[in-house]
Design a protein around this nucleic acid. Structure first.
Lengths: 198, 198
DNA sequence: AGTCATGTCTACCAGATGGTAGACAGTCAT
DNA sequence: ATGACTGTCTACCATCTGGTAGACATGACT
């Protein structure tokens, strides 16, 4: 049954969800194998160790998110607020449909410094371009003046936090319905844009 | 050596840090015992199981944070923006000095629903009072009009996110110096207040 | 047909983990 | 002094976990 890399993909997908939702250390290879419907050794066949599986998962996640964001930025008009809104909209869908994606990114802070550094380097060019852009726009008076890097970090924290902590929403009794989600999106965008507006 | 609950306190404190920083499942009882300088069985003497230790840790953390916030709210003047600023200032110190505190709260979303629900109920009265207050102030035009509950969740997400993800700050090359922290605090406050202002 | 590569499996192992049982040493009330 | 209580420890144990070794099946190449 040489069905190409189908098994491999399935393992990656299941790993993103499990790692992102429960945390890396709370997930065993058996758990992953169980979800995929395969023996543990098959997981270890495709990824020689949990460590390397994690590497692959992180890389793919970063790539997925980067692609989504990149596309949103390209498609949006030049106005910074509209661009930010476009990015937020683009990120919102995967964020709420698969909170594990952002949960995984959040998880990075508790992994080994090596993982963290790798991901940091991977994001570096995006961050640099974004900060430069924000700095320009601040100088042009189209954004509130602040440290551009920190502004990115804060906006990121807001989005990631709200997407990965369903309990926070439950605590304020936010409805988990479809319309609740739509409303959440507009309010999230309003919140961040209000924070960025000059 | 009957030194009261000293050992118990030490275990709780070490557990907050370890659970909050590394995640609950990544911390073994041996780890905790090692930090406290005691045998594992001593940990299990004070808390009959890891589960119950976690319960105690969560409850104490919630209490600590609630106390800090409560005091800040009481001391601040009636203006909502000033109150929010006071709370942010009050929370910032423990947040950056012991990121584990907020990290633990963040961890709740990946624990059992029972834990989550307990904490949710514990926070309920605070949330209710806060939403009522925000609603009033919005009606009076002193805050941007939005869903008050969601506003709380978003502000919480921003603060918790920035405090518990040192890697996000490193990614934008924020200096981890003393003055960097002070500056972070003022920028964080500016960001949130800008998001709340009418 | 025979050889090799690929993908999956079962069987197993060493170490870690949560938890149990019970010994041992102080302290305190009688 | 004695016995009960408290707090800590050592010695184990069953289970889980990441990982190894190697068998087995399928198909591709020669």
């Amino acid at each position: 049954m040489t069905r190409r890399g189908k098994t491999r993909e399935a393992i990656l997908e299941a790993s993103v969800d499990l790692f992102g939702n429960r945390g890396v250390s709370a997930v065993s290879l058996d758990d992953i194998a169980g979800v995929v419907g395969v023996a543990k050794q098959t997981v270890l066949y495709w990824f020689p160790s949990k460590e390397e599986l994690l590497d692959a998962v992180l890389e793919q996640t970063a790539l997925e998110l980067a692609t989504v964001i990149e596309a949103a930025v390209r498609a949006a008009p030049d106005d910074p607020l509209q661009r930010v809104e476009a990015v937020l909209r683009a990120v919102f869908r995967p964020a709420v449909r698969r909170p594990a994606l952002l949960g995984l990114v959040r998880e990075v802070s508790r992994l080994s410094p090596a993982h963290a550094e790798r991901l940091t380097l991977q994001v570096q060019p995006f961050v640099r371009r974004a900060t430069d852009y924000l700095r320009e726009q601040m100088a042009a008076g189209r954004l509130r003046t602040a440290d551009p890097g920190l502004m990115i970090a804060l906006a990121y924290a807001t989005v990631t936090g709200i997407a990965t902590e369903p309990e926070a929403l439950r605590a304020v009794q936010w409805p988990a319905t479809q319309s609740g989600l739509r409303r959440l999106r507009t309010e999230l965008i309003d919140f961040v844009l209000a924070a960025l507006r000059p």
